[in-house]
Each structure stands twice: as structure tokens, then as C-alpha cells.
Design a protein around this nucleic acid. Sequence first.
RNA 1: GCCGACGUAGCUCAACGGCAGAGCAACCGCCUUGUAAGCGGUCGGUUAUGGGUUCGACUCCCAUCGUCGGCUCCA
Length: 592
Amino acid sequence: MSKERYEDTKLFRMRHSAAHVMAQAVLEKFPDAKYAIGPAIDDGFYYDFDLPRPLTPEDLEQIEARMRSIIRENHPFVRREISADEARQIFKDQPYKLELIEGLEQGGFDEHGEPLAEKPVISIYTHASFTDLCRGPHVERTGEINPDAIKLMSVAGAYWRGDEHRPMLQRIYGTVWYTSEELQQYLWKLEEARKRDHRKIGKELDLFSVNDEVGPGLILWHPKGAKVRKIIEDFWMNEHERSGYEFVFTPHIGRAALWETSGHLGFYKESMYAPVDIEGQQYYLKPMNCPFHIHIYKSQIRSYRDLPMRLAEKGTVYRYERSGVLHGLFRVRGFTQDDAHHFCREDQMPEEIDFVLDFSLHILHSFGFQDIKAYLSTRPEKADGEVARWNAAEAALENSLKRSGVPYEVDAGGGAFYGPKIDLKVNDAIGREWQLSTIQFDFNLPERFDLTYIGEDGQPHRPYMIHRALLGSMERFFGVLIEHYAGAFPVWLMPIQVVLIPIADRHVAYAQKVASELKLAGLRVRVDDRAERMNAKIRDAQNQKIPYMLVVGDKEMESGQVALRLRSGENPGPIPIATFLERAKKEIEEKI
RNA sequence: GCCGACGUAGCUCAACGGCAGAGCAACCGCCUUGUAAGCGGUCGGUUAUGGGUUCGACUCCCAUCGUCGGCUCCA
């Protein structure tokens, strides 16, 4: 069964129509308003307006209420095809519409500003008192929109045609569904996402912070967050070492000449920070690790026997991000990539891709991401490097994908100018997609740095270079992990795995004895010996998402047991210490 | 960077031209507890920062810094 395209669904038409209904409501409220464009989007619709004053939440309520009454009035949508001149007459007071008409006449752009293949007919849609320049399609009548399944969500600034040099308009976002149940479901998902927000959980679990005085977009990892990071990194290092990677360390700054050679000062400068002057020489903070790894490769003449070479580093890079885009751990100015560069021969290349794809999937699976999709991006129009290499690389990427069985999509022409790539995206617990891994060919840097190896024939050859990051960056990955698990990480990742809860003071010594035993077995354990009631200790441990709570009182002390409670609320009750240890070790081993 | 909202105790929030408050946390004490908050007390503030208006500013105005929602960007 082939999936219906969203654009062809009734839901899409309802949303687009709802945008018109909203525009009518806004126009009634602000007769002088200029209206721009109002398409359907993934979860709803928006419409951009030029208004005499900023909208308030009360305005939204009124507009929403008026929308419901317009819907109930059940106006038909009437389409009419008109000439450009007629359109100019109708929209003579609407500068944005006039500009759109101009564009349509020139050959046309769709609502995203993309050029259309053929010159479009100009059409208008009218319902009730409202007429809009619009390609359609719409529902037949406003009554087909479910008035109980609409909601206006927010107002935000948006540039006319997305151009920051053009006027800023007010964009009203709304959502519509077939049924109010679907609307409720959607709102529930938003609410769930809000509850999982890594910035909120990061504070509650004392994992990390960002501080004004330190600077925006710069992350402070607190002991508990750092513990999780260390566990992730230790695992990462072990898996890499086992799989034939070699570790390197490289500095945080490099001379301007390096970035000239790499080309970053040409095409990446706007993301780099201003240079520091050292004895009259300019040095730049690194936005990437590649040039350093390349110089390690170049530090001696390489033989074909040395390949493949896999250099890995948790490399901390700094990139300038505009202040408005910073977001918790997801968008920061300094971050640590789990970076590696593969250098290999042509005959090794397909196998190398097989290896790195399998390895990536293995790493992602280990963190509990089972639902993974791949995106293959191929050669764009403007591309560097030999076409033969592009083709070979793209074939290798696609073959690996097929062999691995990961579902994938091809973004034809979506690759970077310097090589094709595979991106891996994971679906989290509430169905959101996050891009984590990138496996990226680079045909540009080997040329720029004149990378070679000596082949069997005694002649220099150009190696293939593959850049890859699996988790992406430690910061972003940690953020995704927090939101995926809502802070309740698998036991192996928890900074504190076990809390001993003595019921009364006389049980503290026993709790400490049990704790030492568990620590000896490698568990991360705390004893909650505060002068609090057991109930309070349980509550705190629950809120901290501690996997195992071990309550000890008279009975346990007497029998040498612990009463196990889980963060799920399950209460398995008293068990021997050895039994608990076995269970915990098994769950840690299995990464549950 | 741009538009809008916002910035009050460690945290979550009140007060909205007229003496800056509560709960939690922290600290002290009492209680010695059986599966999600025991009780009492104490401490805690240049109301982000800097200017301005006013008899008087957390409150109004301006600027700066930061946060949030978007836009833009995302080699």
C-alpha cells in the first residue's frame, strides 16, 4: 500500500483552509492588516501578517473564537482564475500580494519561494468576506473543518520571504485535526515533550548548567552529568579500540595558514571566532578536527600497507552560533565531537563503509536506539572531486545500506560539495527524529593537503578520506539521551544506581555495610542517612530516577536481606543481597 | 542578528507606583520512622546590570546582558 502524500490529504486541505479562515478573522479584527502567506505545515498551519501592534494571547483567543463561528457559518470556498491585471486590482492595497503576483507573472514561485516548473495560472479563493491569492486546493466549505479540533498555538516573528533584510511579520501558528481526540493527542505529545525537556531535567537531576557569566552556549557539566559522560566515553573508547581505531589528541587552536589550506577560512569563516594573536601570528579556535588529523596522517610517508587508518578523537570544537539559535545542549558554541577520520585505498573503500555503518548502528543500538533511519545524500550540482570517485562512493554507501537492512531514503543532490554522505537518524520514545551519526566522504581536503600513500606500484596515490561522527557531539547526544529516557537512563548509564534507605538510625551501619559490598562489586551506591522519614527518602530517590532503592530495617538486618523497590514503582520486596547483585549486574550487562 | 515575551532567595513562583513575600531546598532542633513530602525554628534579596521619570520604582521609560518561543542559519 503506498502512502498518500500529505499534500493530497483532506487534512492538508483543512489546514490550508483553516489558515484562510484565520486570516478572515484577523482581517475583521484589524481591517488595515496586510496579509502575506499562509500555508499548511506539518502539524497545522500558519499565516503571516503585518499588523499595527503586537498580538497578545487575548487576541489569539478572540481570533480562535471567531474562527469557530466562521466555520459554523459553513461558507463555500470558491475558486476563480483571473489575469494578473485583475489580481493587481483586487489586491491593490496588499503589497505582499502584489509582490507575489509579480513573482507569479515572472514564472512563479510556490509558497516556499521555490521556482515552479511552468508559469502558473493565477487563482483566487473566496469564502465569506475573505479573498486570497491562492493556488489551493481547499475543502468545499468551511464547515468541513472540525471547530472542536482547531487551536491557535503561538505568535512569532518571521521575515517576509524568510529574508532577514525584509520586514518582520507576525506569524500566527495554529493546528487542526480531524477530531478533537487527535487534537488532544497532539497537545499531549507537546506536553510530554515539555516534560522531557533536557534543560528542565538537567536542572532537576543536577546534570549540567549554563551560566551567564561563563557565557551563553557554553556547557558546565556537573558531577552527575560528567559521570554519565564518562561512562559514555569509556564505552565509546573501548568499542573503538576493539574495532581498530587509534586515538589521537589535537590542540584547540591552529595557525591561520592551516585554515587557509583546509579552506575553512574561505567557506566556513562565518562560523569561526576571531583569531588570537600570538607573537604576531594569527591562530584560530578550531571549528573542526579534520586538519589536525590530516597532519597526523601526513607526518610520514604512508604505505598502502598502512591503510586503512582510523584516527579517532573526542575533539572539542568551537563554532560561532548566532545568539538567537542557542538551545540548551542542542545548539551550543563549544562542543565535543566523537570524531574520526578514515583513510583508505580505493579497493578497501566499500569494505570500510560496511564497517563504519555497522559500527555506527552497533553504537546507537547500545544506547537503546532501535528505531533508526538512514538518509543518503548524493552529488549536488556544484561539486568538487572526480565524478568517478563520487560514483564509487555513492555506490558503496548505498550497497552498505542495502546490506545492513536499515530503512533509508535518498536525497538526490543533497550532498555537500566535497562528498556524499549517510546521516543516521533515530526515533525517540515519543516519536521525534534526531540526527546523530554522519558518515561523510571528503574529496576536497585530500586534494588541498595533497594526501598520498605509496601503492604497490611504488607510485603515490590519493587515499579516500571519510569523516564520521557517531553520537554527533557529547552535548547534543546527552540532550537527546535525556529527552529519550526522560532522565531515567538505563542502569549502566545512571550516575547513581542504588540508594540504600535505612528506616531508622539504627539501620545506618547495616546500610553502609551493604553499600560497601555493592561498591566492591562495581555498583554506584549512595546511603541516604539523612534524618528523614523513609517515605521522604523514597520520594527523593524516585524523583532522581534512581533505578534501585534498597530499604533496610529491622527485618532486613536480621535476615541479611534488602527490600528492593524499583523506580517504576514496582516493589519486589525483601531479597538476599546476592540475589539483588545478580539482578543488577545482569541488567547493567544487558544495558537495560 | 531580527520580532515578541520574560528576568524577584539555590529552585518554583507571588507582590504590578506606597514597608519584597510563600512553598521547597539549606542550617539547627525534636521525632526513630516500613514503600512518593513528620513537626518546629533559623538563615537567605543592591528585585539581571546601568541610567532615567517620580515625593516614592520589583512595578513606568531607555540601554546593555541573558533566558524562552519563533525567524534566519545549520560545513
